[in-house]
Design a protein around this nucleic acid. Structure first.
Lengths: 368, 368
DNA sequence: AGAAGCAGATTAAACGTTTAATCAATATGC
DNA sequence: GCATATTGATTAAACGTTTAATCTGCTTCT
């Protein structure tokens, strides 16, 4: 059980020098084909695993990246973490997590802690409205195209546009947009997109949950039933979280979805497909975003130590905004009644099976 | 911008040896009070930050722990990650994340990768029914008390017991328990607890979502409306995820919650407090669980290198099962109608404001 | 045949820390 | 006042890797 074999063990076993072994393993120096093979075989035989610590000390690179999400408790975190971990792992990097507990200045501390821990670079999904200062180390920021210094992000604006168009096609002309608060670039982009789609073609109104809760307490009703009665036929939330809140509030108020009104979300959170009605939403391509962010980060890291422009080019402008995908499910449907009336229709008895709903298939539901 | 100051910079600046500086910083060797102070001042002045790589190489300890969640996409992951990160950070450890994408054997690979990356120990929240083999390194397992080799976990059984009692007190005598599948110790414990509470006092039936989906497809209706009509007055899901599914399905079917039936969940996921009706659920004490897991892990690590029994004792039996907390919200209420009839009551028009509900306060709602 | 070039290996230093062993000087015991 | 602890510091080796510089034979060119 003697801990782990190291280069010198292999060298000793074969009667060669450590340098040669190192070269053989990395393929860098000059080693004859044959000796190279022999060495690699022996290495495998001894179960050699390179010591990251030794390598880190020698090269000055830890091959570890830090991941800081402003709000680690956000339900999207798992997806982020998974995608980032995957991309980093493919590139031979480990991922250290940092926590900022939602606190804006703790975010900076978290970043610094990760750097002190030796992270070669940091991936940051910043807190609303935060700007990441110069850290003295490579950083990749994932937020929104309108965030200065942003590296890559989903195209939230276009996502909003698509949601808007989807609702328009279904005949909706009056939509209530539900957001949390106005200092999030992501939310603002999404809202902007929806509004652009409706510009001249319908009316939009805005509901800030944050404001309502400030006066009426957390978890307060949002008054959506009233809006539905007033003629709003669609509720476009900028997050599935808010969409869920809307759906349950409306359902509890006796409003049928999508019979009376439609509800859409953003992010395709894990439960979006299994609630009733399942939620029409907009999904980010996390895999791609993560890949690009990591690639950019690594390119920065490699440039840092003179290795100059490696084959990895920096993120090109057309790669900085990743299209979102519209997932059409049951919560959005065509407007049935007249402009203002129908919203009061009482709930039908029996399960509102929506198998008769016209299902457009911009994107097919990915039921696994 | 000269990278970072190291021990030898400090030593040189003060005309002492590196060893002395090292001793002064760690407080280990013999250094005079005065020189110690001087050195620490100089260190601060130069912005000295110890090189983890150097230390790791020298001590053989990376001061990094690995965190492997079987299902990194699980909505509970953020809470886990946050709590573990916090506890580890307090103890001077970093947290490296591993991903197993829900795959059982990938779990083992993830663990191994983390170990190769130099993690001193691993925290595992295993996949249902998986058993963690000997890894050759310290491990802390967080699953359930009935998992062999488990280190610490929430007391899921007792949690079930409390949920059951809560429903009994509200007058429920027929409850449907909703689970995913039967190979999860956590779920089985929770279910066991609920059943124990109802034993002799009411009837329980079991719904496995996994089985239903295998025949009817993912996201299929669970037939809860039918059950409600048959006299089931309460649905106890073993996860908020399933409770959410139940609530929306019932609501869509025109059943009022908690007017007609009650629904409870487990885990207190982030949205549990803001849906309508807000969800009565059972919360784990993640902070404590994480603390204990980390403490145990570190104790194992320290024992590994002869430093023998440090002041940290291993996890004592009474610390291995952490009580859960009942969070009573709006989704659970007293049985109104007669044993079997009332469930058919049509939905009342208007918002079903539940402000008149009798609110017990085993635990007050933590609205932030 | 002598110089030059080159392939294939070795040497040695470096990365930054820890720590056992050593040494010098001062305090303590009798 | 001399042997002995004790304190406060230094020396040197070690951890495992990378890499620039060097060395040794050969081959090849002129």
């Amino acid at each position: 059980m003697a801990s782990r074999a190291n280069l010198s063990d292999i060298a000793k076993a074969l009667g060669v020098s450590v340098a040669t072994v190192s070269n053989a393993m990395s393929g860098k120096g000059r080693v004859s084909q044959e000796l190279g093979r022999t060495i690699r075989e022996k290495a495998k035989e001894l179960g050699y695993v390179p010591s990251l610590a030794g390598r880190a000390l020698s090269t000055g690179r830890s091959h570890v990246l830090g991941l800081v999400l402003a709000d680690i408790a956000h339900p999207l975190f798992p997806q982020f973490a998974q995608a980032i971990e995957h991309a980093a792992s493919e590139a031979g990097y480990g991922v250290l997590i940092g926590d900022s507990r939602g606190d804006v200045e703790a975010q900076t501390r978290a970043i610094n802690r990760l750097i002190e821990r030796g992270a070669d670079g940091i991936v940051v999904v910043p807190r609303h409205g935060t700007r990441i200062g110069d850290i003295g180390r490579p950083v990749a920021v994932i937020d929104s195209a309108s965030t200065p210094g942003n590296t890559v992000a989903a195209d939230h604006w276009n996502g909003g546009l698509e949601i808007g168009r989807h609702l328009l096609e279904l005949g909706h002309r009056s939509v209530a947009i539900i957001g949390l608060h106005s200092d999030s670039n992501v939310q603002n982009d999404r809202i902007g997109g929806i509004r652009e789609a409706f510009a001249g073609r319908g009316e939009t109104r805005l509901i800030w949950i944050g404001e309502m809760e400030r006066s009426h307490g957390s978890g307060c009703p949002l008054g959506l039933v009233r809006l539905a009665e007033e003629g709003v036929t669609a509720f476009a939330a900028v997050s599935d979280l808010h969409a869920l809140r809307a759906i349950t509030e409306l359902q509890q108020g006796g409003i049928s979805i999508p019979g009376d009104v439609s509800v859409t979300g953003f992010d395709d959170l894990i439960w979006a497909g299994v609630i009733a009605p399942s939620l029409t939403t907009m999904r980010m391509d996390m895999e791609r975003i993560a890949e690009i962010a990591i690639a950019d980060l690594i390119s920065q890291i490699e440039q840092e130590d003179g290795r100059a422009t490696s084959p990895r080019p920096p993120v090109s402008p057309d790669q900085r905004s990743i299209p979102m995908e519209l997932i059409i499910r049951q919560s959005s449907g065509p407007v049935l009644g007249l402009p203002a009336a129908g919203a009061m229709t009482p709930v039908l008895a029996g399960p509102a099976s929506s198998s008769t709903e016209p299902r457009r298939s911009t994107t097919r539901e990915g039921s696994d």
